[in-house]
């Protein structure tokens, strides 16, 4: 083989090897439209997005992947933000929506302009968009299922709900309701809105506790377990089984209680890294792959056995997380087909 031939072969080989990274999406621009960044979950979500997309841009998989967060958590503002993204010429928009329905007008405008829209976590109902969703109803049901294994006798439950009027709150509540119907020895004796924030939950629980009988367990939505625990401690009442939501302060409190008096519970939430899964799904769609409109992501659960490891991996004030890869996205897509 001549030297020129060798060089040519080498070049062809290099091109062939580089091919996966130089996919059809190398020129594509993807934007993240996020409605809120004011809690640890959303901060971790944005960090995951940055970590994964920075690498994807550096590897030449996509041209850019900018993240935008609205200044206020308002659907009207996010609709305007999405309309701005249409004008900015993005090829795909990944959305964590302030409302499942109030953005539909703007999302439709984007679809009509030929833009791929992938919603996750806070999903949208507009049929032209893709949905990377979490089965929140199952999450609520699983909480009661877990309690049924711990408390075969049943008992009184206190329910801490999220922000009123938000679909996630409604779905988790529905799941808990179904769970209680399936296990009639449980009874919800009180319900408060904790707004997924420890301080709000603590105040709300402290307010309702004096009027409640003995509580066997607290069913929650995440971000409210530690506040509930504080309220029980302050009222001098025995600590019930409180379902946790993967926040670092919750896991830390749980570990302390476990060491002190063998406290047992379970912790479930969705990983903030789901934003990166949505990113890869958008990339796969732009790449021309056949992707079903509805995809389901698994929960991230922390159990008594994995508590120490999860606590170690979770940053102070943060939430347990996992970054998804392109292969994870392919797996989720093929499972949903």
């Amino acid at each position: 083989m001549t030297r020129k031939g060798l060089l040519l072969t080498a070049t062809t080989l290099a091109l062939a090897l580089g091919a996966p990274a130089m996919a059809d999406t190398a020129q594509k621009k993807i934007a993240l439209s996020n409605n809120y960044a004011g809690n640890s979950w959303r901060q971790a979500m944005l960090e995951s997005w940055k970590r994964v997309t920075d690498k994807a841009v550096a590897d030449g998989v996509v041209a850019s992947a900018d993240a935008f967060t609205t200044a206020e958590n308002q659907a009207t503002e996010q609709a305007a933000q999405i309309q701005n993204m249409i004008l900015q010429g993005y090829d795909a928009i990944v959305v964590n929506a302030a409302s499942p329905t109030a953005l539909n007008g703007a999302i439709k405008e984007a679809c009509d302009a030929g833009i791929t829209v992938v919603s996750f976590d806070g999903i949208v109902t507009e049929p032209c968009a893709w949905r990377v969703k979490v089965d929140f109803v199952k999450m609520g049901r699983d909480e009661v299922e877990y309690l049924a294994t711990r408390l075969p006798e049943g008992g009184n439950l206190l329910e801490i709900r999220g922000l009123a009027g938000v679909s996630v709150d409604d779905e988790i509540h529905q799941g808990i309701d179904e769970g209680v119907k399936a296990h009639p020895n449980f009874k919800i004796v009180g319900s408060v809105n904790g707004d997924w924030a420890q301080d709000v939950a603590q105040k709300a629980v402290a307010g309702i506790l004096p009027s409640l009988p003995e509580i066997a367990a607290v069913v929650t939505q995440g971000g409210d377990g530690y506040g509930a625990a504080q309220a029980f401690a302050a009222a001098g009442r025995p600590t019930p089984i409180i379902i946790m939501g993967n926040r670092q302060d919750e896991l830390k409190w749980w570990a302390e209680q476990r060491d002190a008096n063998k406290y047992e519970t379970v912790s479930t939430s969705i990983a903030p890294g789901v934003s990166t899964l949505a990113f890869w799904v958008a990339q796969q769609i732009l790449d021309g792959q056949e992707v079903p409109k509805d995809l389901t992501v698994p929960f991230l659960s922390v159990t008594q056995d994995s508590l120490d490891q999860s606590l170690k991996d979770t940053p102070e004030g943060g939430v347990t997380n996992v970054d998804y890869s392109q292969d994870d996205a392919k797996k989720v897509i093929s499972e949903s087909k």
Partner: peptide
């Protein structure tokens, strides 16, 4: 414009 409602929309 939005084609549907939400109790916190405005």
């Amino acid at each position: 414009l939005t084609t549907s409602g939400d109790a916190n929309i405005a």
